[in-house]
């Protein structure tokens, strides 16, 4: 059960609409990017950064912080919007996405962006790194959680399952993973490209606590995270993965649920249309644009 009341949930839903708007603006002003898989994870990012993670945006390298490894690193734009909104860096950095010399590259880079805890981009690697981070905490008997988001297409990678064995064997229950199950990958529907069959059963068979929840339902996701946190006892208890049933491109009328939205072109008119549909104001103002 989630401990959140209706007002808290409504506030998170409002924040998620804002972050979706910001992500669409961020990519839209460049004109091309990984919009689909960015929008599908906005709700979990908002829930983590606005409720669960112990962080200090003024001190991004604080040793005791909770950490997030965005293993599906191409969804960086959604995380950048979340971090900018939290105050890790100025909002106008979002206008530099993927431009030469930017601190916000397409895929997450710990050396460039305040608040990015691990470099990712080659699919399958982030969960291993997250396990290493969780292990470092476990060895030191330090508190805190390491969160990791992988993709459904990414779950085709063998390395994911190497880590599935490892994290379970080491009982890294301070590792809480999410799989963004939007059902699509670059070449089509996941069930057509590489059917992962019963994904919850797979993770359970690898020794994890696993459950599937609606990845756009804050109460359901919150309850699953609360359960994982309550259970955590590194070295004793198994790690948790929460499979998030999501919609790729969620919130962008021009591409929601379309299999072609993995990495696509779109224009300012479509950005404006999306902001109206989301019922959020533009963050990227003419003043901000002129300052660039």
């Amino acid at each position: 059960m989630s401990s959140m009341n209706r007002e808290e949930i409504a506030a998170l839903e409002r924040k998620a609409r804002e972050i979706r708007g910001l992500t669409i603006e961020e990519i839209g002003y460049l004109g091309v990017g990984h919009i689909g898989g960015s929008l599908s994870i906005v709700d979990i990012l908002v829930l983590l950064y606005h409720k669960h993670m112990k962080i200090d945006p003024t001190n991004p390298t604080w040793a005791e912080r909770d950490m997030l490894v965005l293993s599906k690193g191409h969804a960086g734009p959604a995380l950048y919007a979340t971090l900018a909104d939290k105050g890790y860096f100025p909002l106008d950095w979002l206008l530099t996405l993927n431009r030469g010399g930017t601190k916000l590259p397409s895929h997450c880079d710990r050396t460039k962006t305040p608040g990015i805890d691990m470099t990712t981009g080659s699919l399958g690697q982030g969960l291993s790194a997250a396990a290493g981070l969780a292990l470092a905490r476990a060895i030191d008997k330090k508190p805190g959680f390491i969160y990791c988001i992988i993709g459904d297409g990414e779950s085709n990678e063998g390395q994911v399952w190497e880590t599935a064995m490892f994290a379970s064997h080491k009982r890294l229950s301070n590792l809480i993973a999410f799989a963004d199950w939007n059902g699509m990958q670059i070449d089509g529907l996941t069930k057509d490209v590489m059917d992962m069959e019963d994904i919850v059963a797979k993770w359970r068979a690898f020794g994890w606590h696993a459950q599937m929840v609606d990845g756009h339902d804050f109460a359901a996701m919150d309850a699953a995270i609360e359960e994982a946190k309550r259970r955590a006892a590194p070295g004793i208890e198994k790690p948790t993965i929460i499979i998030l049933r999501t919609i790729k491109g969620k919130g962008a009328p021009f591409c929601e649920g379309q299999v072609t939205n993995h990495n696509m072109n779109f224009c300012i008119a479509q950005v404006k249309e999306a902001l109206v549909a989301l019922d959020v104001p533009a963050h990227i103002t003419p003043e901000l644009l002129r300052a660039q």
Partner: peptide, 22 residues
Amino acid sequence: INVGVAEADLVGVASGLSAGGK
């Protein structure tokens, strides 16, 4: 730490441990 016969995970976990200060 023995990761089993899993070299990709070997280096991935090592990278995470390094990011955690080890």
